[in-house]
Amino acid sequence: MTHPTVNPVQLADEITRQLGRLTDHLTQLPPDEATSVIAHILDPDDGVLGGITGLVTGGSRFAKTQAEHGRLPAEVWLALGRAANELNDIGHDLDEHRATLHHVSQPATTTAAKPPVPAPLVVRRHR
């Protein structure tokens, strides 16, 4: 059975619409569900961020080939490469928090659990 040919521009438009729908849903979910969805989005293998990073990385490889043949300016390839590297770095920075997000999204096992304590929103980054 043959599959209909997919128009890549229409596919990109549909993915963009779906991301908008996901964002709308995320803002309306209860905290536990929203936290679980965020943890899934950040999954480096199966999540949205990993998928977008892979897409930009693929675009960078394509742009490199095109730049080598003189069809694109080298600046385009370099910009896509930087974007792919930045997304990868962001993914690594967020990956250390995925387990916490997953843990927080799980239902509490005790009935006498302490309520969450507000945290200061100014935190020093450590690397």
Rank of each mutant, 00 (worst) to 15 (best):
H3I: 06
N7K: 07
N7D: 15
P8A: 10
P8V: 03
L11P: 00
I15Y: 14
T16W: 13
T16P: 01
Q18M: 13
L19S: 09
L19M: 13
G20V: 11
G20C: 09
R21S: 14
R21M: 12
T23P: 02
D24T: 10
H25I: 07
P30Q: 03
P30V: 02
P30Y: 04
P31I: 04
T35G: 10
T35K: 07
T35S: 06
T35W: 03
V37W: 03
V37K: 01
H40C: 03
I41W: 08
D43I: 04
P44R: 00
G51N: 09
G51P: 06
I52W: 05
G54W: 09
L55E: 01
V56H: 02
G58Y: 09
S60C: 13
S60Q: 11
F62Q: 02
A63S: 04
K64C: 06
T65R: 12
Q66T: 03
G70E: 00
G70R: 08
R71D: 15
L72N: 01
L72R: 00
E75Y: 10
V76I: 15
A79S: 15
G81I: 05
R82I: 07
N85A: 13
L87P: 04
G91H: 03
D93H: 05
D93S: 03
D93L: 06
D95K: 03
E96Q: 09
H97L: 04
R98Y: 00
A99G: 00
V104K: 01
Q106F: 13
Q106E: 14
A108C: 10
T109G: 05
P115I: 12
P116D: 08
P116G: 08
V117D: 14
V117W: 11
P118H: 07
A119F: 03
P120Q: 07
P120H: 00
P120K: 07
L121W: 10
L121A: 10
V123R: 14
V123M: 15
R127Y: 11
